[in-house]
Simulated scan of single mutants.
Amino acid sequence: MNRTLESIAAAGYSGLELFDGNLLPFEGSIDGFSQAVAAQGLAVAGVYSGGHFIYPDAHEDELARFDRSIALAAAVGARHYVIGGGAIRSSGRRDEDYRVAGEFLDRIAERATSAGLVASYHPHLGSLAQAPDQIDALFAETSIGLCADVAHIAAGGGDPVNVIARYADRLAYVHLKDVEATTNAFLPLGEGVLDLDAVIDAVVEAGYDDWITVELDGYPGDQDAAAARSLRFLQGTKLA
């Protein structure tokens, strides 16, 4: 973790987002983790968690885990609490799954908000809400904010500019990365097919004024160099 914090700071970033699973080892020494973050001049922009959501019998257990996760996020001073996922049944998605998941997301968001966090749902490849119609079906059943991960939206068959505009009043957080057209492999900013200038215009037009997090899932190259390249790309846009 210290190596990761050093790399993020060295690349020029001012904050980080991490999975709640990365916080669990520090549950008994969370102050030490916070001090390590601060020592690098960083802030915790967000904490990401996930779940199945669609199985009511599992909600009690899932809530117990979310309560732990939310408490850790609040303890490290995170601004955002990002929730991703939503299981897909072996038989496929059912209309009722969106209703059950939407109502459950509202319960999680209420807990996160009560802890001082900004809650949002992250549409994700391989989840209940991947394609544009699936995102719409879920968001019709919940009031939670949107975490717009533009590469996941594009890889799921959507236009991130349209999704951001459609949910401008619910845009709570933004994840940026680029994507390759044929394989959906994620890439540093400016090295894929996304029209990132149009994406940034949509974010600005939505009135968004909060953290923007750069990600790069599963990238096989030099991740330190890729992080630096993505930041240089952003420094050449209107976000600079």
Rank of each mutant, 00 (worst) to 15 (best):
A119W: 12
A206D: 04
G28K: 11
Q35D: 15
Q223T: 14
Y13Q: 12
L196V: 10
A119E: 09
L194M: 11
L105W: 09
P188K: 01
V118Q: 09
A181N: 05
H59C: 10
S114D: 14
V203T: 11
G126L: 08
G51Y: 07
G92N: 10
I135C: 05
T142H: 04
V174S: 07
S14N: 13
D222H: 04
R3P: 05
A73R: 09
S34W: 00
D67W: 02
I200K: 07
F26C: 03
E27Q: 14
L24C: 01
D149R: 07
G207N: 08
D136C: 06
E110Y: 03
L239K: 09
A227I: 00
I88W: 06
E17G: 13
D31F: 01
H80M: 12
A172C: 06
L189N: 10
Q235L: 14
N162Y: 03
I83F: 08
D133K: 10
G86Q: 04
A36N: 07
N184S: 15
E180W: 00
G158W: 03
L146D: 09
A39V: 07
E27D: 12
P123H: 03
D222W: 05
G46R: 12
A9Y: 04
S7V: 08
S69R: 12
S143M: 07
V100C: 02
F53I: 06
S34C: 10
A151M: 06
L72V: 03
V193L: 12
D222N: 15
A74C: 01
A129F: 05
G50E: 07
I54N: 00
A198D: 13
D133W: 08
A115Y: 11
A45R: 02
A155H: 02
D149P: 04
R68W: 02
A9W: 03
R94V: 08
E103H: 13
P188H: 02
L42E: 05
Y121H: 14
I83S: 12
D209W: 00
W211N: 01
A202R: 04
G86R: 03
Y13N: 12
G156Q: 10
A129Q: 05
T182M: 02
L176C: 06
L176Y: 06
F53K: 03
S230A: 12
I54T: 15
S90A: 14
S49E: 10
E6N: 13
P123C: 10
S69M: 05
R229S: 15
L196S: 08
A202K: 04
T183A: 10
I30D: 04
A227E: 02
E6W: 01
A73W: 05
A226P: 03
Y208E: 04
A43T: 11
R170S: 09
L24D: 13
V44E: 06
A140P: 01
I135Q: 08
S69F: 05
I70G: 09
A154N: 04
A151K: 07
V82M: 13
V37Q: 00
F104M: 13
L234T: 02
G116W: 12
F33C: 00
S49L: 01
S114W: 00
G221T: 07
D95F: 04
L187D: 11
A226T: 09
Q35P: 00
A10N: 13
A228R: 15
A11H: 05
G41K: 07
L239S: 10
E103F: 01
A129V: 10
R99H: 11
M1K: 08
